[in-house]
Design a protein around this nucleic acid. Sequence first.
RNA 1: CGGCGUGUGGCUCAGCUUGGUAGAGCGCUACGUUCGGGACGUAGAGGCCGCAGGUUCAAAUCCUGUCACGCCGACCA
Length: 479
Amino acid sequence: MAKDKKLVEAITSMDTDFAQWYTDVVKKAELIDYTSVKGCMVIKPAGYAIWENIQKELDRRFKATGVENVYLPMFIPESLLQKEKDHVEGFAPEVAWVTHGGLEPLQERMCVRPTSETLFCDFYAKEVQSYRDLPKVYNQWCSVVRWEKTTRPFLRSREFLWQEGHTVHATAQEAEERTIQMLNVYADFCEEVLAIPVIKGQKTDKEKFAGAEATYTIESLMHDGKALQSGTSHNFGDGFARAFEIQYTDRDNQLQYVHQTSWGMTTRMIGAIIMVHGDDSGLVLPPRIAPVQVMVIPIAQHKEGVLDKAFAIRDELLEAGFQVKVDNSDKSPGWKFSEQEMKGIPVRIEIGPKDIEANQAVIVRRDNREKTIVALDELTVKLREVLDTMQKEMLERARAHRDAHTYDVTIYQEFVKTLEEKPGFVRAMWCGDQACEDKIKEDTTATSRCMPFEQESLSETCICCGKPAKTMVYWGKAY
RNA sequence: CGGCGUGUGGCUCAGCUUGGUAGAGCGCUACGUUCGGGACGUAGAGGCCGCAGGUUCAAAUCCUGUCACGCCGACCA
């Protein structure tokens, strides 16, 4: 009883203060530490290992579609950044500038990349001569810097890790296909690996990327009912190509502009994992992204044979391909249970003298704390079952939560009231006029999250102005 | 950029109102006892009280300035 109390004191309850809960989990799960640089964090081993797994999974999927990895400079000369008008205007307010090299002022200042469109364009302008050079499907893993005013671990930091894909194509159609293809890669990754359901759709002109012709997005819903933009894929048309003069000679010896795309996913997804799956005991990692899937916790480990058995189990499970560790630290079992739970390790296996006597072990799921007593010779098979089930149920649970927090409305008063009182997505029709988006933001602080690919007609008229509606839009308050 | 808040052993904080020997809990080290939901005993180590000025016989405490970080808003992945 007293121990339970201590547990809840360690992490602020979600219902009490979601923001504080998030910070507590991030710290208790040892994902990050704050630093003396505002808005920049140390990503600790437990956090970085999640990112490495995200990289591994995404990179594999990218390469399956023909992506090649490259690396470009982290500095962008001001003149280069200036070349595409919308792009500069979008990013100028939040770039960091390098003005000196050593003690000497630079002739031209350079910004630390907030994104690398301009550098890729500069590069492609040299690289691409002929239709035979196309397409180029490059990606880079790097960090970027955006001088944010308010910052939060993973969700909004001044420096963050990401990948940015940048492609050039001969035709508009090919560019559009690549844009959609990569959005689908992101969506599949989110659902299959992170167990986070997403809405696929297009951003409105107001919300689209600076310099893009079209921005596609996957939107997910956090436990507190706020939306999180989880991955974007942009079709640039030939806008950047014209600004940077990226031309190729086609089969008929005519000069043509290339068509470009870019797409990115960031360490923000770690924040999404926390806010979609976490609970009052801490982090809950989907088995397919967890750096450690199983923690073996020996009970009364000083007793003859217990530790040996624990390590034997570990070796057997490692052999079978699981990520496993033994907690043989000098802590009490209760302590170890709490640690495993705070860190979100999907499953723990308890093994003590009684189990050894009965030739069994106890498997405990992190997400619902369900205990299963398993005969030792069935451990591998059962564990695989438990992890697969857990992965599946986490996605289902997240989807059920999202669906339960998605509301359809057709009357403006109800729209405003819903956004105010019920955290979640609100689906409503829109005329396509930015003035309505602006008014909605003014009235509710909510923004258009996306125009989903899967459209439905909820009514004939725009939720805001009453003019004929063009599209159904997901609205919500976003991180 | 505005509002709020916080800087004191590794961590969380008390002490500041009313100036006078720097404290607690946790953690850490050693030894011993424990071990199925955050165990316990004994003995230790560890602090220019964010930084800089000022007032004073005397400053963690009062005054001025400054830096940093956190949270909440407007802008953004």
